[in-house]
Amino acid sequence: MSNSFTNGRNGRSRAAQRSGTTERAITIASGALLLAPVLRKRSIIAWTAAAAGGALIYDGVSGACAVSQKLGLSAGSPATQRIHQSITIGKDAAELYALWRNPDTMTRLMRPWADIDIAGQNHIRWSVPLPIGPAVSGEAVMVEERPNEMVHWSTMPDGGLQINEWFHLNPAPQNRGTEVTLEYLVDFSRLQGGRTIRAISSFFDKAPHMVIGKVLHNFKALAETGEIPTLERNSSARSQNESQVNNRWRGDLV
């Protein structure tokens, strides 16, 4: 899989600014520390820390860029961000296209992060619950589709957070099926405001990276096996009482 992105504000590829090993180790470690409390508590502070922690862990393992830039609380978030990632699935394009366009598939794939309401074949309402205050929500419509090749969705501009999503299909060599590429363009420029909003926007700044890989892996599993691997109702002596939101994010924020 490839995973690259560019920072729309300064126009430079962040991949070009990969951080060194030591800094990366520190980043991973402090990310893990920030995350530790949220696995137990459910306060706004813990949650904000978790958002930053998840971001730091992500940056640590990907070595994407400097710690200082990352918290971003004073500097604000980048205006736009474009990321893409690919996965090869052992099915032909027609089958994958049909599965992707099935409304039930979108609901299932987004379930770890967002509730999706199907408003029509080409129109959804989405909402991301937060530990306090109202959920962040909005609507999205399908902008363009080319059967067995491409689908483009976009959130409505009034949503505050502007997200464009492209789904591409290309034949894979050696009878390996189809190469599926998912691409997101996220515009944060409308998300301004107080400290909480800035923390949340910094959280959403990282969210696409966590979402994109999981959506692709889960889509592949669904296509190849008919189910998505899950830890739902996993027997364990702990963590049964975590909040809904923390549960939702747990897969990425262990």
């Binding site: 899989m1 393992v61 990907s62 966590m210 890989g213 999981k214 892996h217 592949k220 599993a221 190849e224 096996t225 691997p229 899950t230 830890l231 897969g251 990425d252 262990v254």
Partner: peptide, 14 residues
């Protein structure tokens, strides 16, 4: 196997 790790994106960076 590609399809049985629910935490695939936790392991992938490693």
């Amino acid at each position: 196997c590609d399809n049985t790790n629910p935490n695939a994106n936790l392991q992938e960076p490693l």
